[in-house]
């Protein structure tokens, strides 16, 4: 898939070679909200890898999980199926692809902005040394201070860490770099 080599591509710029119908369906699937972070869409999260119309009323969708054990994948698949059914596609199959591995770098700029607005510090860009080694400060999504402390490496979901702002004293979630 083209998205694999161009992870920052937005849902709107569909892969070359796809038909008008595929572009339309891809936009619909991409607009499905994330089940756990409903402020952002699957396209903004960067988990929608491809969509092919394989016959009349038959669609195959490629989805990549954020974390291998992420339970939201099943809800995402069901939501995509429902939306595409509602738009006349009788047979929708959602396939999970692991490679290339999803990275928080695949979250679009708009997705990051929405996370921040929702009170979740967006992930920083990952470095070549891997996700844990990044040294940039994490900003409090409430007051913008960079004086924040790690409370727990794992928060309400595996993809988030729990931090506290030393300036405004509010705890907040940080979407961990992966």
């Amino acid at each position: 898939m083209v998205t694999a080599s161009a992870p920052h591509e937005s849902a709107e710029s569909a892969p070359r070679g796809s038909t008008r119908l595929e572009e339309e369906l891809r936009a619909l699937a991409g607009a499905v909200p994330d089940p756990e972070l409903p402020v952002i869409t699957l396209a903004e999260l960067g988990v929608l890898r491809g969509l092919h119309v394989t016959g009349p009323g038959r669609v195959e969708v490629e989805l990549t999980p954020t974390y291998t054990g992420c339970p939201a994948v099943e809800a995402m698949s069901a939501d995509i199926e429902r939306v595409l059914h509602e738009h006349g596609q009788a047979e929708v199959s959602v396939r999970t692809v692991l490679s290339p591995a999803w990275s928080t770098d695949d979250i679009t700029a708009e997705g990051r902005r929405k996370l921040q607005e929702f009170g979740i510090a967006p992930p920083r860009p990952t470095g070549p040394a891997g996700p844990v080694m990044v040294g940039l400060a994490i900003r409090c999504p409430h007051c913008g201070s960079t004086e924040t402390t790690l409370l727990s490496r794992f928060s309400s979901t595996a993809c988030k860490a729990l931090r506290r702002c030393e300036a405004c004293r509010e705890p907040f979630d940080h979407f961990k770099e992966l």
Binding site: Y67, T68, L98, S99, A101, S103, P131, V132, K176
Partner: peptide, 14 residues
């Protein structure tokens, strides 16, 4: 095992 390992290695780093 490369596709799974490529994904899991990032989780295991945490």
């Amino acid at each position: 095992f490369a596709p799974l390992a490529g994904k899991a290695v990032k989780e295991v780093a945490y």
